[in-house]
Amino acid sequence: MAEAECTTHQIASITGHKTLSEVERYTRAVELKRLAKEAIIKIS
């Protein structure tokens, strides 16, 4: 879901996680990858 650009709130509502920090723990790698791609595009 994170790779499909769902928000942490959307993911939590589907998975049933009680806190956003739980969801963020699993989506952090995808978020960092997306941010890196966006940064490379900006400096290209």
Rank of each mutant, 00 (worst) to 15 (best):
K42G: 13
Y26H: 09
K37W: 03
R28A: 13
L35H: 08
A29P: 02
T27I: 12
K42D: 14
T19W: 11
A12I: 14
Y26T: 03
A29T: 10
I43L: 14
C6E: 10
Y26I: 00
E22A: 07
S13G: 12
R34C: 02
E24L: 07
I43G: 02
K18T: 11
E5G: 02
Q10H: 13
E3Q: 06
Y26V: 00
A4I: 14
V23E: 12
C6W: 14
I41V: 03
S13K: 09
V23W: 04
A39F: 04
A36P: 00
V23S: 09
S13D: 11
A4H: 08
I40D: 04
T8G: 09
S13A: 11
K42N: 14
A36G: 01
L35T: 02
Q10C: 11
Q10R: 09
T19K: 15
R34G: 03
V23P: 01
C6L: 12
L32K: 10
H17K: 12
E38K: 05
E3G: 13
I43Y: 15
G16F: 03
G16T: 08
T27H: 04
K42S: 13
L32P: 00
V23G: 05
E31L: 03
A36S: 07
T19A: 05
V30S: 01
I40Q: 13
I40G: 02
Q10K: 08
I14D: 06
V30M: 07
I43N: 09
R28G: 10
A12R: 13
K18C: 12
T7W: 10
H9K: 10
T8E: 02
E38Y: 04
E22K: 14
R34S: 06
K18L: 06
A12W: 11
A12Y: 06
L20K: 06
E22Q: 15
T27D: 06
M1G: 08
I11H: 04
C6S: 14
S44H: 02
S21Q: 09
E5L: 07
A2D: 13
S44I: 00
K37N: 05
T8P: 00
I40F: 04
